[in-house]
């Protein structure tokens, strides 16, 4: 039963990930990537990482992709920017994607694929266990990364703020 669910989720994840990059319509891409997120959340559930699965859905599918969809819908209103890819852009993207693939291949090559064969800790993915790891054992790195996020947010707000050239009406 579990393995059937696993194969179903894996197939959905790979199919929708491919469809994300292959579909011409950006709105379809966003919808496919949401399906990908759901199937990955399903994998988390299979591993009994309930908290991770729920947060994955809330944060990625529920917030970030809504904003993506929001922006794409706004841009789609005026079909100004057609694909204007130049040759040097294509070359650059091929080179950077190749470098990324090199990193991935070397990472996968070094990892031992049999590492998951042991019995994982069943309670690790539950909220309580995760909370204790984050807020007791690794409190400082956790808080530091949250400050990093905060500074990024402040920066974004500052950049998007218009300078008042004329007094508001």
């Amino acid at each position: 039963m579990i393995s059937y669910i696993f194969w179903f989720l894996s197939f959905t994840a790979v199919f929708s990930a491919l469809a994300t990059i292959l579909s011409k319509n950006p709105v379809h891409s966003v919808l496919y990537i949401i399906v990908t997120f759901f199937s990955i959340a399903g994998h988390y559930f299979l591993l009994n990482a309930q908290f991770l699965a729920a947060v994955h859905i809330i944060v990625y599918a529920g917030a970030i992709m809504v904003l993506f969809l929001y922006v794409i819908m706004m841009l789609n209103l005026n079909r100004l920017e057609k694909e204007k890819t130049q040759n040097w852009m294509k070359l650059l993207s091929v080179v950077s994607a190749g470098l990324l693939m090199l990193v991935m291949v070397s990472a996968v090559g070094r990892a031992s694929l049999m590492a998951g064969a042991g019995q994982p800790d069943e309670t690790m993915g539950l909220t309580q266990a995760l909370g204790q790891v984050l807020y007791r054992d690794y409190l400082l790195p956790f808080e530091l990364s949250s400050i990093l996020f905060l500074s990024a947010m402040v920066g974004a707000v500052y950049l998007s703020k218009k300078e008042p050239t004329t007094p508001p009406l």
């Binding site: 729920a54 599918a61 529920g62 909220t127």
Partner: peptide, 10 residues
């Protein structure tokens, strides 16, 4: 509760 928030958000 997280499930609830997740469903609300999607």
């Amino acid at each position: 509760l997280l499930y609830l928030l997740g469903v609300v958000s999607i």
